[in-house]
Amino acid sequence: MHIVDGALSAPVVITGAVLAAAGIGLGLRRMPMEKIPAAGVLSATFFVASLVHVPIGPSSVHLILNGLAGLVLGWAAFPALFVGLLLQAVFFGFGGLTVLGVNTVNIALPAVIVGWVCRPAIAASSPKVAAIWGAIGGALAIALTTLLVGIALAASGSQFVAAAKLVFFAHIPVMVIEAALTGAAVLLARRVKPELFDALGPAPREA
């Protein structure tokens, strides 16, 4: 769900850039230097995974997996997904340059929220229960992303409201697919390498 250059109003673009800069700053601050290799390799993994197309009926969709990114990376999802979007814009022409901030917030903020809501449960419960939380996180992240895309469009002009609503409903199948995939990925990772969900240091657990 990459918004392109030229569609959004200046206040929306600027707000997106400021929020993205704050999120990236927070994410970097919470990432100790010795975790940079892990964050970089995981960020590359999400970049590669987002190029995988899965069939849906006669068509196919590419994966976003920002829910899973939030579960694994926490706040580091902000810089990691920003780097992914930057490389996609520069080398593949996906999205745009001025909208990098907005696109980063749209993808990374849901990731951080999912990480914050679902990660404690995934770390604490049995692999099967963790998979259910993973599925919830996968669907929730896409729902929040479409919502944020809709807000960015609607705030740029009332002519986009119809498209914003359509985006949400058109992504319901994507939510289902991402839920199934994230659940399965969490199930496998919890069985094989549970420390994946704590890869970037202990998550702050205020609860």
């Binding site: 995981l42 590669v48 994966l63 995939l181 399965a184 990925a185 199930l187 990772a189 094989v192």
Partner: peptide, 9 residues
């Protein structure tokens, strides 16, 4: 595909 992504991670 979920297992594939999990394994990649």
């Amino acid at each position: 595909f979920g297992y594939l992504v999990g394994m990649l991670l």
